[in-house]
Design a protein around this nucleic acid. Structure first.
Length: 785
DNA sequence: TATTCGCACTTTTTT
DNA sequence: AGTGCGAATA
């Protein structure tokens, strides 16, 4: 495909700031990739290019494409999310920010537990919920401000001023950072007298995708990375800004013009994705927003079906309709399941849809939801990993000291905790003392059990020390902790699901080992897990209908898109009992509208919207009003179809009688109203491919069942030595030249003055900030840049 | 100390 | 409706 003149201009832009205002479906990803390739072609060293994407998945795709175009030259490029980029930098500069190289990243769940525990400790549970505290802390940190100061006037001021210092203390003790710290610590690095200037000069070109979704801290980071070169490319679309609740400021697009007045601006207004009708529908909605740059998206894709708005009775009818329509599209138009996506505003809506699809034997996959990595058993195993890497990981200790149950009760743990706190040592150390009998409250029986637990941890530590690969280590965790054994003894389906999840985790670890030639560390694997978003796990394998939230659909496209639950209160989502100002309401509504815009513009050929007259929320039933956005769609784009209730007007709503079986969804087929929809449903009996049995749950976002790799439990695992990896790394080998910054194990950071010799025998004269100029073999230092 | 039961809370969106 | 937590019980 040829580039259009505007795209071409963006790709060919040389030095200096560039802003690309890219509408939905305008090929911005392609432009970005080509631009990077063009920079390399122009002689920019690949390792001096930083590209920031919104998701890890987008980063992966970009890497892949550049890999194809540039071969191994693409490898040294820095391509990733803000978070993964910062994690990488923090690993390099861990000392400067006071972290170990194996530092932990606290995810949502960890933070919640921690704050919950702190609130409990201070008897503040009445005053605030962990969620509210964290969101107050988070909104401050998103702006780069001090949480206590920032919330000084809010109703949580008192709680935050007590909890936040404790929270921060706990993170320091546990050698951990939260998501925001990841960015803030790197921002702080810019002020470091040695590292700061280096960081500023590190990149010659910086490119940021989805710029409308960056928050102030991220913008600061960008400015730091750009340094004096001013070679910054930002790509964004203010109409697709849907993360302001996470601190994103679409105003960054305006600020960019202020901060870089000499920037060139390119507008990509031709849409290559959607039909005219779909685009007109999306435009019709978005023009109702006040706060936006005017943009005129256009397409030359004539024709296409009208957007269909199907009004149905309730969410079951909605699911049934969608399932039917899918069948019809497969039968009539020869579409494949993989061509279709169902988008919803909230995860909670997925359940009914799932049920209805399943009852018709339609394969589906769900993106997001409860992430694989958040499952209890996976988190437990991760806690073992953490505790072994970092004995001070008290939260991890708490989590697994008695998991699986080994008879260490609450009272024992309380004694250990109290003792550890009073001596200012970690819980694990406390447990050691207790096991040795130094804590009188812990009696012999409990001591023995603690000893047993410590033996497990120490055993794992020795496995790690022996140089086990990550997957080997995980296998040892699963075995030595008796986790798998216990689960298998349970014999329930739930337990065997969990075993499968553990197998999946091990196999991911083994993929990781392969990828890193066995050189990846536990901490790196854990980092990857922590930063993996639920949307990343999507593997395009097989043909299945994709279900996800609108947020997760950002950047994706499908020939056919269903957007379900188009009702006021749901989409746009309106939270009740909220005491915000009217202007906030408008802002929220505008964001919801942008969300609708994103949803609609995912569709290439056909867009189907549904609304239910009645929707169950929790236990009760609510009568709904169709989404106001539906009325904003130009009439000539829209086909509206309302189905009357099959029952007489004034019958009261009858509850579906409770069934004995777990799922009653199958009963719906016979009453389906939709066998005559123009998308022509086939009869429910004619299913192309069914999977599983009724109520079976074997199809979800996880990949298929994998056996545990074979291994020996007894005897020592033979760990290969690892001194031959260097050869393959030549592609990434960076010649250390005078002026480079390097790190030495004992001398710390220094700057290379002169260099002598090559390869293994290269000698460097280095000016260390600690000890002055020293001559060192190059292989004893790590190039920082 | 382990297990079980009942209650409260959840549900907007996620790196 | 499903989960997680705390209290009550074995």
């Amino acid at each position: 495909m040829q580039l259009n003149p505007e795209q071409d201009r963006a790709v060919k832009h040389g030095e200096g700031p560039l802003m690309v205002l890219a509408g939905a479906g305008s090929g911005k990803t392609r432009v970005l990739v080509q631009r990077i390739a063009a920079l390399v072609g122009r002689g920019v060293h690949p390792s001096r290019i930083l590209a920031v994407t919104f998701t890890n998945k987008a980063a992966g795709e970009m890497k892949e494409r550049l890999g194809e175009m540039l071969g191994y030259h693409a490898r040294p490029m820095w391509i990733g999310t803000f978070h993964s980029t910062c994690a990488r930098l923090l690993r390099m500069f861990h000392e400067e920010v006071g972290l170990s190289p194996d530092y932990n990243i606290f995810d949502d769940d960890d933070q919640m537990r921690l704050v919950g525990a702190l609130l409990k400790e201070r008897n503040l549970k009445e005053e605030a919920t962990p969620r509210s505290v964290l969101s107050a802390i988070g909104s401050a940190k998103n702006k780069g401000e001090d949480p206590v100061e920032y919330n000084k006037l809010g109703y949580l001021a008192a709680v935050i001023s007590i909890i936040y210092p404790m929270y921060r203390g706990a993170l320091v003790r546990e050698d951990a950072v939260d998501f925001n710290d990841l960015l803030l610590k790197v921002r702080d690095l810019f002020a470091h007298k040695v590292v700061g200037p280096q960081l500023r000069q590190r990149f010659e070109h910086v490119l940021v995708d989805e710029f409308q979704d960056t928050n102030p801290v991220q913008y600061n980071l960008v400015q730091g990375f750009v340094g004096d070169t001013r070679n910054l490319t930002v790509v964004g679309d203010d109409d697709q800004s849907i993360y302001s609740w996470r601190g994103a400021e679409p105003r960054n697009l305006l600020d960019f013009k202020r901060d870089y007045p000499d920037s060139e601006e390119v507008k990509l207004e031709q849409n290559y994705r959607s039909t005219k009708v779909i685009l007109a529908a999306a435009n019709g909605v978005i023009i109702n927003n006040q706060d936006r740059h005017r943009k005129q998206l256009w397409t030359d894709r004539d024709g296409g079906e009208l957007v269909l708005w199907e009004e149905v009775r309730d969410e079951r009818a909605e699911g049934d309709f969608v399932a039917c329509a899918i069948e019809g599209l497969v039968a009539e138009e020869g579409r494949e399941w993989g061509d279709m996506a169902i988008l919803y505003r909230t995860h909670a809506q997925s359940r009914v849809l799932e049920e209805m699809l399943r009852s018709r034997g339609i394969m589906y996959k769900i993106v997001g939801g409860v992430s694989f990595f958040q499952r209890r058993e996976v988190k437990d195993i991760r806690a073992y990993m953490r505790l072994v890497s970092n004995p001070a990981a008290d939260m991890s200790f708490d989590r697994i000291v008695n998991v699986p149950a080994r008879g260490i009760g609450k009272t024992t743990v309380d004694h250990v905790r109290y003792y550890a706190k009073s001596k200012n040592i970690s819980y694990l150390e406390g447990a050691r003392d207790a096991a040795r009998g130094e804590v009188p409250e812990v009696k012999a029986a409990a001591r023995k059990k603690l000893k047993h637990f410590l033996d497990i941890i120490d055993g794992l530590a020795s496995v790690k020390k022996a140089g086990a690969s990550v997957s080997e280590f995980l296998i040892q965790v699963v075995e030595r902790s008796t986790y798998r054994e216990r689960l298998e003894k349970e014999g329930t389906t739930d337990a065997s699901d969990r075993v499968n999840n553990l197998a999946e985790l091990v196999s991911m670890a083994s993929d990781f080992d392969d990828e890193t030639d066995g050189e990846g560390t536990l901490a790196e694997f854990e980092e990857r897990i922590s930063l993996a978003s639920s949307a990343d796990s999507e593997d395009g394998r097989g043909s299945a209908v994709t279900m996800m939230t609108v947020h997760a659909a950002k950047g994706l496209e499908y020939p056919i898109v269903f957007v379900v639950g188009m009702e006021d209160g749901l989409f746009p989502s309106i939270r009740e009992n909220r005491d915000t100002l009217a202007s906030e309401d408008r802002k929220d509504l505008e964001e919801e509208r942008r969300l609708a815009y994103v949803a609609f513009t995912r569709a290439m050929d056909r867009l189907v919207l549904t609304s239910a007259r009645v929707r169950r929320k929790w236990a009760d039933v609510k009568i709904t009003t169709p989404s106001r956005f539906l009325h904003e769609i130009p009439e000539d784009c829209l086909a509206i179809r309302t189905r009357p209730d099959p029952e007489p007007e004034n019958t009261t709503f009858r509850r579906r009688p409770a069934r004995a079986g777990k799922f009653s969804g199958d009963s719906y087929d016979s009453t389906s109203q939709y066998s005559d929809v123009p998308m022509n449903c086939t009869a429910p009996g004619r299913q192309r491919k069914a999977f599983g049995g009724a109520g079976g749950d074997e199809f979800d976002q996880r990949s298929e069942y994998k056996e545990f790799p074979t291994y020996s439990v007894e005897g020592e695992v033979a760990y290969e030595s690892c001194d031959e990896f260097n050869f393959d790394q030549s592609a990434e080998f960076v010649e250390i030249a005078a002026g480079a910054t390097v790190r030495h194990k004992s001398f710390g950071l220094g700057r290379v003055v002169t260099s002598q010799g090559q390869g293994k025998n290269q000698k460097l004269a280095i000016d260390f900030s600690t000890v002055g100029v020293k001559t060192v073999m190059a292989r004893f230092v790590d190039p920082v840049f």
